[in-house]
Computed example of a mutant assay.
Amino acid sequence: MAGFKIEGLRPSYTTLGGAAYCGDSRQLLEALPDDSLDLVMTSPPFALQRHKVYGGLDQADYLDWLMDFARLVFAKLKPTGSLVMDVGGAYQKGVPARSLYHLRLPIRFCDEIGFFLAEDFYWFNPAKLPSPIEWVNKRKIRAKDSVNNLWWFSKTEWPKADVSKVLAPYSDRMRKLMEDPDKFYKPAVRPSGHDIGKGFAKDNGGAIPSNLLQIPNTESNGGYVAGCKLVGADRHPARFPARLPEFFIRFLTDPGDTVLDIFAGSNTTGSVAEIEGRRWLAFEERQDYLAASVFRFMPKGTPAAKLQAAYDSVSTGESTDLTCYMTQVEMFQAVAE
């Protein structure tokens, strides 16, 4: 699988399947040809994020700022392509009343740019800590905020999608029903007059998933975290779990398609895309975040000296081919893990 490089631009690092670039995503997007991307999967810094962490804008400016990126993404997507954006909600500053910025986002994307809202998804993170502290822990007047919006936008009404690629495991009850439908179910005509029969008892390899994705964000001992500890690098403060981009990459793309993350952070999206046999691009403004993200592409058991050398190379601004730090066997092992 040949990686996707941007002509005339120097990547921070490359792998077998993709390339990561440091810079303003708006400028990097301009360098891409129109109609060239199959999926943009990303999580922008949320509005009202603490400025001391890694940036973030006040509500008044946040949507205008995101619109600049969205207009460019729209031009670069193929007609069958999609944009999936993870957007967390927030409270208004200083009061226990919710902001509406994340709800205005899809309205503006569709009305002003021309996107279609293909479907709204919701990411439930059962491991999320109670927040906001003031209203949940101290005053105890609000429930824990543990759901993010995942807006799936498409360039046309008919984007590429195949839900059969992301089927969920059957429940134990459903498996028993499929084994012996007569024992557990007797067909009946519904009040609507529709006779559902027993066709549902067929084993299709899994159940159709819902638009509520329950995925805990509990990564604490993976290669990325271990690598950061080894070199003394700060971990990205807002990483999403690999299963999140995995779901949409499988759902909305085919092997060989091109996936981009315009706010790559620790480059979870790129590493998942590589595992899934997609070409990928990662855009990130901070060199230190990109440098630490190389650990996602190094196989388990990579010697500490190689991890340090790869990190140092990207940190100092060298354009680094990560495959040079591994044998061919090790590289395929990294992709498979």
Score class of each variant (00 low, 15 high):
279 R>P: 05
186 K>N: 11
220 S>L: 06
334 A>H: 08
330 E>P: 00
15 T>L: 05
149 N>H: 13
218 T>Y: 02
28 L>S: 04
282 A>G: 14
271 S>P: 02
32 L>N: 07
120 D>R: 12
109 F>V: 09
154 S>G: 08
108 R>K: 11
130 P>M: 06
112 E>I: 08
187 P>I: 10
129 L>V: 05
302 T>S: 03
113 I>W: 04
248 F>Q: 11
293 S>L: 13
248 F>P: 04
98 R>S: 12
122 Y>P: 08
112 E>C: 03
119 E>G: 05
17 G>H: 11
167 L>Y: 11
22 C>N: 14
252 L>A: 03
310 A>H: 01
293 S>M: 11
72 L>W: 06
25 S>P: 01
218 T>P: 00
12 S>F: 04
266 S>D: 04
136 V>M: 10
180 D>S: 07
104 R>V: 03
214 Q>V: 15
312 D>V: 06
36 S>Q: 04
292 A>I: 00
8 G>Q: 05
160 K>I: 08
69 F>S: 13
65 W>V: 14
7 E>A: 14
2 A>M: 14
40 V>S: 04
296 R>T: 00
199 G>T: 10
19 A>N: 06
180 D>M: 08
201 A>H: 03
10 R>V: 14
145 D>F: 15
92 Q>G: 05
215 I>W: 01
276 E>V: 04
328 Q>I: 14
9 L>S: 00
256 G>A: 10
22 C>P: 02
152 W>D: 11
329 V>R: 01
112 E>G: 07
150 L>P: 13
121 F>V: 03
122 Y>L: 15
118 A>C: 02
109 F>M: 15
189 V>C: 06
300 K>Y: 03
174 M>H: 10
297 F>S: 13
314 V>Y: 05
305 A>C: 03
267 N>H: 05
221 N>W: 00
22 C>L: 13
315 S>E: 09
191 P>C: 10
237 P>K: 07
224 Y>C: 04
244 L>V: 09
168 A>V: 09
301 G>H: 00
239 R>Q: 10
204 N>S: 14
228 C>I: 00
31 A>F: 01
74 F>I: 11
220 S>W: 12
169 P>E: 02
52 K>V: 06
94 G>H: 13
219 E>S: 15
8 G>K: 09
232 G>L: 08
169 P>G: 13
212 L>S: 02
52 K>N: 09
246 E>L: 07
289 Y>C: 01
116 F>C: 10
119 E>C: 02
316 T>S: 14
119 E>R: 05
248 F>C: 10
23 G>Y: 10
34 D>F: 00
14 T>D: 02
203 D>F: 05
287 Q>S: 09
84 V>K: 09
264 A>W: 01
92 Q>D: 11
162 D>H: 09
107 I>V: 15
38 D>H: 12
64 D>C: 15
249 I>V: 15
246 E>T: 12
120 D>P: 06
84 V>G: 06
319 S>L: 06
24 D>G: 10
153 F>L: 15
259 V>D: 04
131 S>E: 06
325 Y>P: 04
267 N>W: 01
157 E>D: 11
178 M>P: 10
186 K>D: 09
291 A>F: 05
221 N>E: 01
129 L>C: 01
164 S>C: 09
137 N>S: 08
86 D>W: 07
201 A>W: 08
181 P>R: 12
124 F>P: 02
272 V>I: 15
